[in-house]
């Protein structure tokens, strides 16, 4: 492979542009505020990425298959509330927390999958409907769904630095946190699943051409169940990461990340029409989004500008992709 084909391949990938953006941005920010380039800030951004990152993996999966899921944030809210309130009463371990939230998420995802595979209707519409049902039921049953105290083991998990890099004298350590580690683990596992398992490849095939997949003998039904259940499960897991980090249960917060997650996945190069997208790209999408949000804080720009920036990022990145797709 010569240089020009390499270059062509590189420039045809969203990852290439995102890395360029991240590097350029880091250099500029480094000049403006050296704090930006510190380890502390890097791990801070990584930590903040975790919840969104894990949810984004689920959404990515759905998008690769050519579907859409806007119910994951409602699923996360339900899984989070139920899990924490059960564990608050009965106690448990971190493992229980993840398992339980994952199973609840998976079951709710199963609801999506069942309706979708039985009635081939727009996935956006169906998940919009189920999202209303899940979230509405939660708030109907427990109108003030805030929980201010969470089990100690979750709080500890949130504080745990798995891979310390720098320790300060005041006892503060900087390094890879368990939360960030969990996200990276999920992403690694899912990368392997998507690349090296048949079901993972079937997800790409389904998104590439539903008809061809059907003709090739791929079970559309099975693949869809896999995709939507897993997306629900990941939303459940992500919700526990969120609780461990912010230490109280606020379903509104989790519910409202919906658009940010979708934005990050699209930014990461996944196409709504299905068939393309990578975990690494999605990670970069999430990272870029948080890096920019974070640098706004460091630059002293009020957080009121957050939405403007996120909106502009979405518009610019999709406009850019749209223009790149047009034949020259």
């Amino acid at each position: 492979m010569n240089v020009s084909t390499l270059l062509r391949k590189a420039t045809s990938r969203q990852e290439f542009y995102l890395i360029s953006v991240i590097i350029t941005f880091s250099v500029i920010m480094g000049f403006i505020n050296p704090a930006f380039l510190s380890f502390e800030n890097f791990f801070d951004v990584l930590n903040n990425c975790a919840t969104l990152g894990v949810m984004a993996v689920g959404v990515l999966l759905v998008m690769i298959s050519g579907g859409m899921d806007v119910s994951f944030s409602a699923i996360a809210a339900v899984a989070m509330y139920v899990t924490v309130s059960v564990l608050n009463v009965h106690g448990g371990t971190v493992f229980y927390a993840f398992a339980m939230a994952g199973i609840i998420g998976g079951l709710l995802g199963l609801v999506n999958a069942t309706i979708l595979s039985y009635f081939q209707i727009s996935a956006l519409i169906i998940t919009l409907a189920t999202s209303n049902v899940f979230y509405g039921l939660l708030l109907q049953l427990v109108p003030r769904a805030h929980i201010t105290s969470i089990p100690k083991f979750l709080a500890d998990f949130g504080n745990w630095i798995v891979l310390p890099i720098i320790s300060f004298e005041d006892g503060k350590t900087i390094g890879l946190s368990a939360i960030a580690f969990a996200m990276i683990l999920v992403m690694l596992i899912m990368s392997i699943v998507l690349r090296y398992t048949s079901i993972g490849r079937n997800v790409y095939a389904l998104g590439g051409s539903r008809e061809a997949a059907e003709r090739a003998g791929i079970s559309i039904w099975k693949t869809q169940f896999f995709v939507y259940c897993l997306a629900g499960m990941l939303a459940g897991i992500a919700s526990i990461l969120n609780v461990s980090m912010i230490r109280y249960v606020n379903p509104f917060n989790v519910y409202n990340v919906l658009m940010d997650v979708i934005a990050a996945v699209v930014l990461g190069g996944a196409k709504l029409s299905g068939g393309s997208g990578t975990i690494f790209g999605t990670f970069l999408g999430v990272f870029t989004l948080y890096m920019i949000k974070n640098s706004l804080i460091l630059m002293g720009i009020p957080s009121t500008w957050d939405s403007v920036i996120v909106g502009l990022i979405i518009i610019v990145s999709v406009a850019f992709t749209a223009s790149r797709k047009k034949p020259a």
């Binding site: 079901i199 490849r201 590439g208 051409s209 061809a212 090739a216 003998g217 068939g275």
Partner: peptide
């Protein structure tokens, strides 16, 4: 042609075999 435009030539060609043999991994 019923090909998968988003996949590589190799994966397209090997697709039938993989599905017939009902492999779990690729």
């Amino acid at each position: 042609l019923s090909l998968f435009p988003n996949l590589t030539v190799a994966e397209n060609i090997a697709m039938n075999q993989r599905i017939e043999e009902n492999r779990k991994t690729v």
